[in-house]
Structure formats: C-alpha cells, structure tokens
Nucleic acid binder design. Sequence first.
DNA 1: GGTGAAAAAAAATTTTC
DNA 2: GAAAATTTTTTTTCACC
Lengths: 145, 145
Amino acid sequence: MTMDDIDRSIISLLQADARMSTKALAEHIGLSAPSAAERLRRLEERGVIRAFTIDVDPRALGYSLQAIVRIKPLPGKLHAVQKLLEAIPEISECDKVTGDDCFIARLHLRSIEHLDFILERIVDKAETSTAIIKSQPVTRRLPGG
Amino acid sequence: MTMDDIDRSIISLLQADARMSTKALAEHIGLSAPSAAERLRRLEERGVIRAFTIDVDPRALGYSLQAIVRIKPLPGKLHAVQKLLEAIPEISECDKVTGDDCFIARLHLRSIEHLDFILERIVDKAETSTAIIKSQPVTRRLPGG
DNA sequence: GGTGAAAAAAAATTTTC
DNA sequence: GAAAATTTTTTTTCACC
C-alpha cells in the first residue's frame, strides 16, 4: 500500500496527460517499460487511480452557466432530497457536509431560466441558497499541488 | 463550431475511458479510424476537450479530509485574498461567485489540524465559513448527464 | 521489484477513392 | 468520410538479475 516517489511521479504525469503511452511514462520516470506498466496496473488495482477521463469545457456542450447551491432539506426530507439531487443531471458534483446546510452542489446550466427551472424542483423539499460562478480562480488541480 | 451527435459520443466515451485507442473509439461510433482521429484532433484544437487526465483518490495521497470553505474578503482585501487562495496548494478548486461570500473553495487536507493551519493563513484577510465533507452523493459527472 | 531484447500486436499515417 | 496498406510504435513476454 506504499506510495513512493515513482508512484507519485506517475500520478503527476498522467494527471497532466492521461493518454501518455506506457513507454513515454517509463522514459520520464527513468524506469523500463515493463516496470512502468506494472506500477500503473497496481495503481489502478489499488484504486489510487479511479478513472482515466477528460476535462470537457461545459460551454462547448451548451452549458454556459455554473452555480453553487447550498441545500438545507426541510424536516424529514433529507433522504428525499438526496435522491432528488442524485437524479438531477445538471448537478455535476454534490457533497454532503457538516453544518447548517446539508448539501452543496455544483450545477451546470444553459441559462438563468434553466437555473430557475431546476431550483423549482427542489424548493418544495429544501431551502436553497444559490451563488452564480463569475470566474474560476483555481480549477481542478491535484491535492497538495 | 458545431457539436454533432458523433462528437458528443466521442466526449462521452472518452469521459469514461480516456485511454481508449482511436481504433476502439472509431468502432464504438461506427466511423473509420482516420475520421475518428480527425474528430478527436478538432475537439482538442477547439478546446472542447481541455485535458486528458486521471481521477485520483485523494486518500491515497494522504488527504483523508475534504472541506468546502466560503470566503468573504475583508474590505479592500479582495485581490490579496484571491492571490493567497491561488497560492494554497491544498485548494483544488476555487470559484469566484455572486452573493455575500465572494469565493467558494474546495480543500484537500491531511487532518483537522491541517485544516486549522490553512484557515489560519486566511483569517486575517477574510471571514470564512467551513463545511466538512461527510460523503459525496454525486462525484464529477458530465454536465447534462 | 527491476532489466533488456525480441516477438507480437496495435495503432497512426498516408494515399487513393 | 472510407478503405487499405505501409510504417512506426507500443505492449507483452520471457529469461535473468
């Protein structure tokens, strides 16, 4: 279960370019191709690498607006709210948190009207507090730099 | 600038497996390999695909705790706060938003003490409100499903 | 765990339609 | 866009350290 510096390098390199070949990866870390392949296999097996994926510009898919919504379920509605949130595809991330608000969700939306439409589905089960994203000073980066 | 159904399929397939070969991609969408390669090249060129990356389990890197922090800069401190937030590697995401709070950040932390340590760097420039993540009902999914 | 080389398998590119 | 073939890589295997 140990993560050494080589494993950390692999993570860092693939974070920057997930399509890098095993051979290129091996060259960067100064290991042979079979060793790099074996390390990579183990990182996947152990669940350190959860997925190889792409970062898509939501605007290209027509989602020009993002919002962060804090959601406080009405008494007795916690489970109903959680199920509802999971079923809303416009929610790309949702965390259950400590504190007065119970959920914090990130929404991708086509317009302000679209935002209103989605919030209408929630208002009868929870109090919401919406913040519209104006810019993104930091986007998805690796924990710890 | 048009995104047709084939482009959307490519996005969806690569979202699920960014290491899929061009050939496999072509077979899934019912196109020849060169056509698929050309489509992929254009999606990258147009910035629709911003990056090929991996999803890493932060716990494997020793970050067992996540928090969402709302940050309201003190009068006159807005720019200083933004610069500070960008310089904190524990912040993996930070959005500038409308409303009373100005920034919302996601922090990856090794412990509660670590959280306290990071917040100490912010408290003299901004009011903060911290919510610790207990679970993640929805994790990173494509806008619109 | 790791190496190196060779065999085997794929994949990307180019050309032609 | 497609098809086919060439050319280049890449991956895997295996013997050995």
